[in-house]
Computed example of a mutant assay.
Amino acid sequence: MLLWHWVAQVLPLLLLQLLLDLTELPSAAAWLKFNSYTALSKKRTDLRKKCPKVRAIRNFDLELMMGNWHVVQYYASTEELPEYACMRSNFAFSSEDQHITMNFSYIYAEDPLREKLQGNITWLIPDFGTPGHWMHTEDIYEGIYNTYVLDTDYQNWGLIMHCAEKKKHPRYLSALLLSRQPTLGDNVITFLREKLPRYDIDLSFMFAINQTSCEHLMESSKDDPLAYIVNGQQRVADNIKLINKP
């Protein structure tokens, strides 16, 4: 009886010590860092009511900024976990209406079908004396939705930031770290990321966007919403998706 009494007292202490030792291992630390439940428990420090005061890039050449970009890192004040992959943007300027259009595409990183989703944003330039400041033309946003080109070398990398204020809600703030190539050097990424905390951006919520295996993604067919195009060949959706019928 004395032996069992001793075991009952000592065993919980041994298990507690083992757990503490495991959490000091690098693998355990990495798990705690990236596990979704621990990430959700992190308190945000970047939620504000008002948009920051921003000075757009000087001597900005709008034409050189246009074209294709890979989004290699992404921040949004409404998102707390990395969700996207294969995010790309194409900027085009129309001399007819003086508008800038960004067509963008992405996939959800955990989507087993790797279905490409697409959208677009259109801006006007309120003052051509500062062409690095754009305003959204869509009327679905409350108030003014501003976009700023913070920095770019045009040929390799760029950094843009969006901000909108909404009544009775925190501001919506996002930032895109752009690269002409699928990857960007760590030193350049660090250089660009360091420009963002001055706008109350919490860099722990700025996530890398995987750009590997992005050339052959599934796209929905314009003719048939239940059909998809994979590598240029159309397939019926019920061959690759489970459709629940009543």
Rank of each mutant, 00 (worst) to 15 (best):
Y75P: 14
K241A: 09
A109K: 14
K241G: 02
I144S: 13
I125T: 12
F191C: 05
H216W: 03
Q211E: 08
A164D: 08
D46N: 09
L62T: 14
H162N: 15
D97A: 05
F91K: 02
R48G: 06
I201M: 09
L64E: 15
L192A: 06
P126N: 10
K245N: 14
G185D: 12
N231V: 01
F60A: 04
R44C: 07
C51S: 04
K116G: 01
R44L: 04
W157I: 02
E115Y: 03
L62Q: 12
T45Y: 04
C51D: 05
W69L: 02
Y199Q: 00
R114H: 14
K50Q: 13
I229W: 11
Y74A: 01
S27Y: 10
G119N: 10
L226I: 03
T45A: 03
I140V: 06
H169S: 13
W31E: 02
W31Y: 10
D21Q: 15
K43N: 09
I209A: 00
N231W: 01
K195G: 03
I189H: 07
T78D: 11
P26R: 09
I57H: 15
E83W: 10
M87R: 14
L217K: 07
H136N: 14
W4Q: 11
S41M: 06
R171L: 04
L117A: 06
L62A: 07
R88L: 00
S41V: 03
N90K: 15
L18N: 11
E219P: 01
Y37N: 09
N90P: 15
R88T: 00
G119C: 07
L47G: 02
A208M: 05
H169E: 11
F207E: 01
T130C: 09
M66L: 10
F93L: 10
L16M: 07
R235H: 01
V236Y: 00
Q181E: 10
L2R: 12
I125P: 15
I140D: 12
I100N: 14
P26T: 04
Q211D: 08
V236D: 00
A175F: 03
